[in-house]
Simulated scan of single mutants.
Amino acid sequence: MHCPFCQSPDTKVIDTRVSEDGYTIRRRRECIKCSKRFTTQESMVLMVVKRSGNSELFNREKVISGVRKACQGLPINEESLKQLGEDVERDLRSRGVSEVKAEEVGLAILEPLRQLDEVAYMRFASVYQHFNNLDDYSNAIAKLKAARQN
């Protein structure tokens, strides 16, 4: 790590802390040459591979935004949406891979959303899983009912 003040490559770590979300490490450093202190943050990069083949950084806010649309008009608070976004990110990161397909992100959303609200789940699933007719909805409802009984 180069010192941002004098560009010296010789720095030492004074303090290390893991962030609240557990995905970022904050390090307090000191330059050996000029004795100035600075902070760095390290985080594991999680990339999402889109259907087009392009990759982009995972963005929890995009997950929350998509789920928010499915929850429109339902009595679901913002804190629940944020928690769902954290749960989805935790699930994806726990897989120990640096890239996930966009389809995997959608699948990771489905179960926590079903637990949050079944109507929002059906709305999201109908778009995500491309429901084309009433049979698709009927099958999804039957699966919801079966899951409720288990």
Score class of each variant (00 low, 15 high):
2 H>W: 02
4 P>F: 03
4 P>I: 00
5 F>Y: 15
9 P>S: 14
11 T>Y: 00
13 V>S: 10
15 D>I: 03
16 T>E: 06
16 T>A: 14
19 S>Y: 06
19 S>K: 09
20 E>L: 11
20 E>C: 07
20 E>D: 15
21 D>Q: 10
21 D>P: 07
21 D>R: 04
22 G>C: 11
22 G>F: 03
23 Y>D: 15
24 T>V: 15
24 T>N: 15
24 T>W: 08
25 I>E: 13
27 R>S: 01
27 R>A: 04
29 R>N: 01
29 R>G: 03
29 R>C: 02
30 E>I: 03
32 I>C: 00
32 I>W: 00
33 K>D: 13
33 K>H: 07
35 S>N: 08
36 K>P: 06
37 R>E: 01
37 R>P: 13
37 R>I: 08
40 T>Q: 00
41 Q>D: 00
42 E>A: 08
43 S>Y: 04
43 S>K: 14
43 S>C: 07
44 M>G: 10
44 M>H: 06
44 M>K: 11
44 M>P: 05
45 V>M: 07
45 V>P: 09
46 L>P: 05
46 L>R: 07
47 M>I: 12
47 M>H: 10
47 M>E: 04
47 M>Q: 13
48 V>Y: 08
49 V>H: 01
50 K>N: 05
52 S>R: 01
53 G>Y: 04
54 N>R: 05
55 S>L: 02
55 S>C: 10
58 F>V: 10
59 N>Y: 01
60 R>G: 00
61 E>F: 12
62 K>N: 10
64 I>P: 09
65 S>N: 12
66 G>C: 05
68 R>H: 05
70 A>N: 00
72 Q>C: 01
72 Q>K: 09
73 G>Q: 05
73 G>Y: 05
75 P>N: 05
76 I>W: 00
76 I>K: 09
79 E>I: 14
81 L>Y: 11
82 K>M: 09
82 K>W: 03
83 Q>A: 12
83 Q>T: 12
85 G>P: 11
88 V>R: 04
88 V>H: 04
90 R>N: 11
92 L>W: 13
92 L>G: 09
93 R>W: 03
94 S>P: 07
94 S>E: 13
101 K>W: 03
102 A>Q: 06
103 E>C: 03
103 E>G: 06
104 E>S: 10
104 E>N: 09
104 E>T: 10
105 V>F: 07
105 V>W: 06
107 L>R: 04
109 I>F: 01
114 R>L: 08
114 R>I: 01
118 E>I: 12
119 V>H: 05
121 Y>C: 05
122 M>G: 08
123 R>D: 02
125 A>Q: 04
126 S>T: 12
127 V>Y: 05
127 V>P: 02
128 Y>T: 11
131 F>R: 11
132 N>C: 13
133 N>V: 13
134 L>K: 12
136 D>C: 12
136 D>V: 12
136 D>Y: 09
137 Y>I: 15
138 S>N: 14
138 S>R: 15
139 N>W: 06
139 N>D: 14
140 A>P: 07
141 I>E: 04
143 K>D: 14
144 L>I: 13
144 L>D: 00
144 L>Y: 05
144 L>S: 06
148 R>I: 07
149 Q>L: 14
150 N>W: 01
